[in-house]
């Protein structure tokens, strides 16, 4: 069973990846994939999920869930999982996905195999692999309980397209009066629809080499050209140049994009820990001995104030 997360009326790509991964597991082990939508007004998303690899689409759409946070959503998910005798519950390892997974696991009397980069079925065994210590080590574990609640790191599954149409089944909400539940009382959307760092395909990160907070304009402009998310080192977050939501590293976000461009970042061990599982890493730094070059796929040594504008210009001319 796959929990589907959406935002601003669109299914998250990370959820489609989880669906694709679930379908691979089901095909290999002779199982069925149920995708689950939970919330207020989520039924409208069903069409976009029809051919994404699920056999059935369970829709729990209730106005009672309008102000629900992860707490209320997890209560519904645990109830559905219980009714359906599910073996594996897969969620994407986003902030909300992690909260819902943990609370659902709590209701089900189990715990989460969290932030996995691989899930393998070996006979009746479920074996997962996950980075720990922000990627400084890899842990291989056997899940001893059922249902196995697993969160999958974004960018570690392939979305499916053109699968057979899923049968839509509507599910009643179990929501109570909500008196002992957190309720959302206010939502503020920022104008720029930011991609969450952990889900981004491309991240452009800046560090102290930018010399002043206003110079992050170079990073933002390059990110806009590539449709990328903006990241930052701990040094510049602690200096108050950038918000903590942009911090990459062991005390910030652990990311695995397809392309990570580190600009003016020397590469402290706790930063490297947070991004070294990226598929491709580009480092731009004036110090040829900076540790960031030890993990870089491609490096350019030199003055970022000369290199970054040129890079943006060349990218603009081809994109």
């Amino acid at each position: 069973m796959v929990f589907i997360e959406s935002r601003s009326g669109e299914v998250k790509k990370a959820s489609l990846e989880a669906m694709g991964r679930a379908r691979q597991i089901a095909d290999a082990s002779g199982g069925r994939v149920d995708a689950v939508l939970i919330g207020s007004g989520v039924a409208t998303l069903a069409d976009s999920l029809a051919d994404r690899g699920a056999h059935r689409l369970l829709v729990c759409d209730s106005p009672a869930l309008e102000d629900a946070t992860g707490d209320g959503i997890a209560r519904e998910l645990a109830a559905i999982v219980g009714q359906e005798q599910t073996d594996i519950v897969l969620l994407s390892s986003t902030s909300l996905g992690k909260e819902i997974a943990a609370l659902s696991a709590g209701s089900l009397g189990t715990c989460v195999a969290a932030d996995c980069v691989d899930v393998q079925i070996d006979g009746t065994d479920i074996i997962i692999e996950r980075p720990v210590l922000a990627g400084k080590a890899h842990l291989t574990q056997r899940v001893l309980v059922r249902p196995a609640v697993i969160t999958l790191r974004p960018n570690y599954g392939e979305p499916m397209k053109g699968a057979e149409n899923a049968a839509v089944v509507s599910v009643d909400a179990v929501a109570g009066d909500g008196s002992n539940e957190p309720r959302r009382i206010e939502t503020m959307e920022s104008d720029d629809q930011k991609v969450d760092l952990t889900e981004a395909e491309i991240i452009i990160s800046g560090g102290r080499g930018l010399k002043a907070p206003e110079n992050f304009e170079l990073i933002e402009s390059l990110a806009a050209t590539l449709g990328a998310a903006v990241g930052a080192s701990r040094a510049v977050v602690d200096a108050g140049w950038r918000p903590h939501s942009e911090q990459v590293g062991q005390t910030g976000k652990t990311v695995s994009p397809k392309l990570y461009i580190a600009i003016g970042i020397s590469g402290a061990i706790q930063h490297l820990a947070g991004m070294s599982t990226s598929r491709n890493i580009v480092a731009i730094n004036k110090d040829p001995n900076a540790p960031i070059f030890s993990v870089a796929t491609y490096g350019i040594v030199g003055d970022l104030f000369e290199i970054v504008p040129r890079l943006e210009e060349e990218l603009r001319s081809i994109l």
């Binding site: 400084k136 080590a137 796929t297 350019i300 030199g302 290199i307």
Partner: peptide
């Protein structure tokens, strides 16, 4: 009772050797 059993903890696979493309804006 345990819910998860650790089979192995290992160091992450080493990243393939990278390359320095060049120096300065001409390497872009």
């Amino acid at each position: 009772e345990a819910s998860l059993e650790t089979i192995e903890l290992s160091l992450p696979p080493a990243r393939p050797e990278g390359k320095i493309v060049g120096e300065g804006p001409d390497a872009v």
